[in-house]
Design a protein around this nucleic acid. Structure first.
Lengths: 132, 132
DNA sequence: GTAGAACCTGTGGCAACTACAGGAGCAAGC
DNA sequence: GCTTGCTCCTGTAGTTGCCACAGGTTCTAC
């Protein structure tokens, strides 16, 4: 648990990020290239675990890889809080837009489905709506 | 406007679906292979326009290609309205789940951003939250 | 007759992974 | 000391739903 270094399997287990995803993050430069054992296996330490945890939580909040790159740069360069705030607000706006879009969609779908449930006609009103 | 046949450019203009996308739909079998002119150009008629319109509207409602395939099959085989209704309700559930997820996200992001806005500390609470 | 639009096929790219294939190393039990 | 089975390695291809070329032909309008 407090080992200085550990392999990718353990990093994966501790952070909940798939092994393939960790290697993918390395490939695209989101995670730094780790040390290797004599046999060529990746060896990680606490900083890698922290960074990967950061990435995972940011991904869970829906930040894109590009946005996470920016957040990481800001967090490491001790960038101004205002920059982080701006990035977060930008993301928040996108999330809110998406919610609005989906709600509109929901109303349309619910309306179509309700019409269908009410009328036992042979011609389905959902299909009709799509064919219009 | 009432021509018997027209080319892909006109089909694109009339339906609002990109030419590349129409060819893509043909490739994956969502649209049938059209007739060809002697020079090898695709020639479409009203049924193709209707079908493509159907696909476009269904895509706008967020149905996946696989779901649209099912809807098309149901609409053409005069499938039971209940089947269409079930597919729509399934999709509606997915949309509602996504809305719920995004709302949770929105609250988290808004909370983090609000903390940041309120406190002019050197350490950004958003970064801290992600690092935790 | 020729300029430039519109069309053709085929391929590669995007996001953010996931899933192999085919091989090598490593730890533990017999 | 050998085998079993797990973990790891690289590299490539697949996923979804398209979009964007490149490099070529054909059609249309002046």
């Amino acid at each position: 648990m407090a080992d200085a270094t550990f392999t990718i399997g353990r990093l994966s287990a501790e952070t909940g990020v798939h092994i393939e995803t960790i290697r993918y993050y390395e490939r695209i430069g989101l995670m730094p290239k780790p040390m290797r054992s004599r046999a060529g296996r990746r060896l990680y330490g606490a900083p890698a675990r922290n960074r990967l945890g950061f990435v995972r939580r940011a991904r869970e909040l829906g930040f894109s890889i590009a946005e996470i790159r920016a957040l990481l740069a800001l967090s490491e360069s001790k960038g101004r809080c205002a920059d982080v705030h701006a990035l977060t607000m930008q993301h928040l706006r996108e999330v809110r837009d998406k919610i609005a879009d989906l709600k509109k969609l929901e109303r349309t779908l619910a309306g179509a489905a309700a019409g269908c449930a009410r009328t036992p006609r042979p011609d389905c009103p959902i299909i009709e709506a799509l064919s219009a």
